[in-house]
Design a protein around this nucleic acid. Structure first.
Lengths: 188, 188
DNA sequence: TGTACATCAGTGAACGCGCGTTCACTGATGTAC
DNA sequence: TGTACATCAGTGAACGCGCGTTCACTGATGTAC
């Protein structure tokens, strides 16, 4: 047993973290394995000892978002004086989350890539979607909230996608504010 | 004057149409100028007589969506027995629009590419966003609907993005149905 | 009406480049004695 | 405690390939006479 037994898994995690950054910033095609490995302080050849190929790395990058992580913007949160659901939505739509270069949530960082991708990729994206919808749902009042949680997920995903792709920061904020209000409004 | 005077502009339009198809199906990076030109029944060298480079072609592809087009899914429409806004939302979220390979609306076809793109690209995306929001707004009852039109735009964009990227067709429909209902619900 | 010509849209070979992936190797390190 | 060894994570040159872009050219066509 050369090397400690968690040595390889730690290296693998470093590659995944670097991959997330590179994919988020440049997109799937434009992020190169060379740059990803450099970001993990390794050289390109070592990549294939950890992942089958680039496609599998991307899939794991997306699935990484589903891992329980208390700092994720869709994690349960509670600010002073606002409901749990409001705190989650505000965090998800915050300037910090929208403009972070290595965007946390795969749903709004890789929508085009996944829509054009393999069934495996879409399956991973679906898992993340349902996981976030469940997190939203469990912080909503009332019962039988499945439909409402999916609609609210649509709102925050749409608002985030638009907010990031629009050129005017004022409009970006306006879209998020209008969407937040709409998402929180009671429906009959 | 060799060639009729609309000859070049017709060729240009053919290239744009082919580009939209290729970009929508494969994404910006994976769509090659070679394939785009083949789709317009031309060869690669001729491209640069029509467009400065690939980037400019992409920008014009996105702006093409803003052009008045009665057949666009966000165009004014009226089905029997439903309000104008409901007809528009149903059309936008229909199976036909969501699963069309050469997806019509640039907002849901190129979100990742634009978010990572140049200011010019985001400006074009913003113009399309506002144009569709205006179309929604003008078919809404009541006044001062700017905020509501932006929120509804977020819902249909988010629902479409999720619906296309998810692996299960049943979930895709469920997301769209829940989002449609939420978008049409009166808010207070 | 028929022909020579000038124009310029379109051709296709060529360019340099960076990509994903492979592979023979190197060398750091835990274990056995 | 000290040393030789086997292991295997990581290296980096090399591969074939397709990309965006350039450019010298070809040849179809409207116009002038």
């Amino acid at each position: 047993m050369p090397y400690a037994k968690d040595h390889k898994s730690k290296t693998r995690a470093r590659i995944l973290a670097s991959a997330h950054r590179q994919f988020a910033e440049h997109g799937y095609d434009a992020a190169s394995i060379d740059d990803i490995m450099k970001g993990a302080e390794l050289t390109r050849g070592g990549f294939y000892a950890h992942f089958r190929n680039k496609e599998q790395l991307f899939l794991e990058t997306i699935l990484g978002g589903v891992v329980a992580d208390g700092t994720a913007p869709w994690a349960s949160a509670r600010d002073a004086g606002v409901s749990e659901i409001e705190a989650m939505l505000r965090s998800y739509l915050s300037d910090a989350h929208i403009h972070e270069p290595a965007h946390r949530c795969p749903l709004i960082t890789f929508p085009s890539e996944v829509a054009r991708g393999t069934q495996d990729l879409r399956h991973a994206y679906q898992r993340v979607s349902l996981s976030i919808a469940d997190a939203l749902r469990s912080s909503m009042d009332g019962e039988d909230n499945r439909a409402r949680s999916l609609a609210v997920l649509s709102i925050i995903v749409g608002a985030s996608v638009l907010a990031r792709a629009v050129s005017d920061e004022g409009l970006s904020r306006e879209i998020r504010a209008a969407s937040l209000e709409y998402a929180l409004a009671p429906t009959g």
